[in-house]
Write a protein that binds this DNA or RNA. Structure first.
Lengths: 196, 196
DNA sequence: GTCTATAGGCCGATAGAC
DNA sequence: GTCTATCGGCCTATAGAC
């Protein structure tokens, strides 16, 4: 008997609208309507629009960073497996949440102070473990570039999807296939960049 | 004797604030103040906030696409030179306009209808010329992936800059150096992905 | 062309009945 | 817990003096 509480309805509606339209463009009345309740209950449960927003962002950020953090710092995982794992995790996550990265990246850019409050406890992206693995194998690329390149190739197509589509480079109906195809190739491309 | 007209002052102020904070979060009063005039003049010159916004977006989009379009479709430019040129153009452009890509990509995602009005005359990203060049040289990558990878490696670091900085992967004061360093390497990485 | 003053509407938040 | 009604403020846009 899984009933959805009003509180959950509101947070789901907020999630949907904040992610679609951003903080400023989303109205509390719209959230209430989307949730099938009213404005008063939003404030009853969450106190304010900003508070509700923080709840949503915290969860989204956790999703986005969760797909990366634990894998990178583990020295027992080989470099190839790290890249594969990150690409695999993100591709799966982002196919189900296409607007997640542009939402987080934009709100991080627009609203940096709010984010600093939220992310103060977030772990650093682990470089040392990777740097070590690179040196052991005498590779031609820095840890920073390796991480940045992997994330770029994996995430950018989602961020730039509307641009690619409106420019005709990729068609909407091909998109999932395009991304799925890339998933297999990215590990190969990245590995080529580590060699002479 | 180059005097800046009030109209120009307003559009520059609007450019700055829309790019920093997005459409909904930018108030017409703030634009007027930033421009050193008043709210009434904004409407006198541009009619409405939305109109002013369209002017700004149109110019920004022209900047972003202008760095790519003409190069790609020219068959007389070799593949290497195309990649170099795109990376070079974008790196220069984005170092001077760091917030340009995230602004355009986000507003494109949030406000697709407004963009469709604006971009209806925009040229397509030319694939055929590249596809031909790839086949002639029997390369291991599709034109789509080649273009997407080049743009990803070049633009994503700007889009994700706040994430990289807040996660400690790159430091603010290293950023320009980091990007400048990558500019030289990207052509090499991309070329490696075209070979067995 | 430029300004001040203000109309008119929307927004976030709350009071208070049930 | 849930609702309706409403406050007080801010926002875009415009009227009208200069």
């Amino acid at each position: 008997m899984e009933t959805i509480t009003t509180e959950q309805k509101i947070i789901r509606a907020a999630d949907k609208l904040f992610t679609q339209k951003g903080y400023a463009a989303t109205k509390t009345r719209d959230i209430a309507e989307e949730a099938g309740t009213n404005l008063a209950l939003l404030n009853y449960y969450f106190g304010s629009k900003e508070n509700l927003y923080k709840k949503v962002v915290q969860e989204k950020l956790r999703m986005l960073l969760g797909a990366m953090g634990p894998v990178l710092s583990d020295e027992n995982i080989s470099l190839e497996d790290k890249i594969s794992s990150i690409t695999e995790n993100y591709t799966t996550l982002l196919l189900e949440n296409e607007e997640l990265p542009i939402f987080i990246l934009n709100e991080l850019s627009v609203n940096r102070k709010l984010f600093e409050e939220i992310t103060q406890n977030t772990r650093q992206i682990a470089q040392p473990a990777i740097e070590k693995q690179l040196k052991e194998r005498k590779m031609e690329i820095s840890a920073k570039d390796l991480v940045v390149n992997t994330l770029s190739l994996t995430m950018f197509p989602f961020v730039a999807k509307p641009l690619f589509i409106s420019s005709g480079l990729v068609k909407e109906e091909e998109f999932v296939e395009f991304i799925t195809g890339r998933k297999e190739k990215i590990i190969g491309w990245i590995m080529k960049t580590t060699k002479k």
